[in-house]
Structures are given as C-alpha cells and as structure tokens.
C-alpha cells in the first residue's frame, strides 16, 4: 500500500465507525476540495453510496459557481443535501459586505451561528428534492449528534491539535486542553446527551495528498481552483468579499500537484487568501472554539 492507500483506508475506517455509532449523522460540505474528497471517501466507505445527508451553510456570499457546482453534484451523486443559513442576519443586512460587521463577526453570524442552529434543528432547513431538482423546506427538525468535517491538521495552527473524534459540549465548546485519548483505531464514540462529536477523517491528509487523490480518483472538482488564463487561481474557497486568488499558472490537477511539489507555497499559509484569518491573529482558534469549521 502506498501513502495515499493508507490515508484512504484510515479515512474509510473512521467514516464507517461514525456511521455505525451515530444515529443522526451529517457531513458538512463546503463545496471545496477537502470536503469534496471527504464526500468521495464516504462513497468509498459505503461502496458507491452516501448513506447520510450532506449539509451546506449558505452565506449568500459564496462565489456563484460554487452553488451551481453544489446543486449539479448533489443531483448527479443523488446526495441528500441540506442547506441552512442565517436568515435573520441576512435580512437585517448584519454582514461585513453591508458594512455593519467586521469580517470575523460576519463569519460568526453567517457561518458559526448558522451552522450551530442548523445542526440543532432550531432554524429552518432546506432539503433537496430529487424529483424536481430544487431545494424545498425540510419538515425534519432532527438534531445531528455526529458531524463529519473535512479539517486537516496541516491546514492551519488550531487544527493540528484536533482528534479524529472530537467532542463538543452543550455550548458547542471545544476543550482543547482535555481531549480524549485515541489509540489502536479506537475513538470517542460515546457521548453524553446534549453533546455532539465532530469527526475528522482527513486529519492526516496534507494539501498535496488531497490533490494527488483528486487526480488518482478523477474526482470532479470545482474549476475555481484552476487558472483560466489570467495567471490566478483559488487555493482555498470561501465567500467572495473575503477570498482572494493566488498567483499561479496551474490549469489542471496535475499542474497543481507539480506546483505544490516545487515548494512554491511551502511558507505561505493555504488560507492566506482568506482575509478573516488575519483578524483572528492567524490562528482561527477563537472562531473554532465557537464552532467554526
């Protein structure tokens, strides 16, 4: 087995543990490369099927191509897609682009809070209807207790301390100092009522591994990651007011891999194009403790 085979097998094992142990399980899908690889790994684990829903938090400031790609893939792979949002903040224009909030407070409103309340079922959700291909109001108010997330340890500081199965308490808090032990393929799959567990099957993958795997498996990836002739591409995707492209000539997956292998970005953070990180002192830990993914 080569390194990618080992990473794949480990992620598959973790996904199957999560599916076995959590009655109400959901996978977060940001439309980006990591969570799309995660989606692919779930299809590996379950032999072509995706046996739990995918959730996307729509800030309404996503690059429009992301939404088109999301809906296309959801229909093609027959995904049970759930979409949530912070309707109140959007209606009151309490956002950074509307000039009322800092970038980080905007993230807090449109992402962290929207996610928290969509997961708990308190806020209304939309769910894809495969018969019509549209999003319709979801009558289910099910609270999810297992949340699968595509975080990687090498991505930025606070994520290097995560466990594969990481508990969050009733307030969504993450106690970084007192995390459960993990050994011998045994994880924290027992949890007290009211708490939930975040599952991180991609923890040991690097940015390069992700692209190598996308190439090997031919995973359909959104083309915002490629240079379309202007010498720029996105390395990390988010909301357009806060996400900038990097200088790059890479037009294909193979070219991205070659580019990463040159070490061109070795000393530049992957999320350097994400302006909100800088407001949080570069570490994202404040946001992550509050539930940011």
């Amino acid at each position: 087995m080569n390194h990618l085979d080992k990473l794949e097998a480990q992620s598959v094992h973790i996904l199957r543990e999560a599916y076995r142990e959590f009655k109400s399980l959901v996978m977060l899908w940001s439309i980006g490369k990591d969570s799309t690889v995660l989606l692919w790994l779930a299809r590996k684990a379950f032999f072509g099927h995706m046996p739990f829903p995918l959730m996307h938090v729509d800030t309404h400031y996503k690059l429009p191509a992301m939404i088109t790609y999301r809906d296309r893939l959801a229909l093609e792979f027959k995904l049970d897609l759930i979409v949530g949002e912070n309707t109140a903040a959007l209606a009151a224009k309490e956002t950074f682009p509307d000039g009322k909030l800092s970038r980080i407070d905007c993230c807090r409103k449109l992402k962290s809070e929207a996610l928290k309340h969509t997961l708990s079922g308190e806020w209304p959700r939309l769910r894809i209807d495969h018969a019509t291909g549209t999003l319709v109001p979801d009558p289910s108010r099910e609270a999810f207790t297992g949340v699968i997330v595509g975080a990687r340890a090498d991505e930025e500081g606070s994520r290097s301390k995560e466990r594969y199965f990481s508990p969050r308490d009733k307030q969504n808090d993450w106690d970084v100092g007192d995390q459960p032990p993990e050994l011998w393929n045994q994880y924290k799959t027992d949890f007290a009522p009211g708490t939930h567990v975040r599952v991180h099957p991609l923890l040991d993958w690097t940015e390069l591994n992700i692209w190598e795997y996308i190439h090997r498996e031919n995973i359909p990836i959104i083309d915002l990651y490629f240079n379309h002739g202007d010498g720029k591409r996105y390395r990390s995707l988010g909301c357009y007011p806060c996400t900038g492209p990097v200088e790059s000539e890479a037009r294909t997956v193979a070219e991205i891999i070659a580019e990463l292998r040159t070490g061109k970005f070795a000393n530049i953070a992957e999320r350097s194009g994400r302006a909100q990180d800088k407001e949080d002192g570069g570490g994202l830990e404040t946001l992550r403790r509050e539930g940011y993914m």
Partner: peptide, 8 residues
C-alpha cells in the same frame, strides 16, 4: 466504473 488516473 470510473477508471482512476495513474499517479502523476
């Protein structure tokens, strides 16, 4: 069947 790419 989706045929995987060879590793670059």
């Amino acid at each position: 069947a989706i045929i995987p790419n060879p590793e670059p």
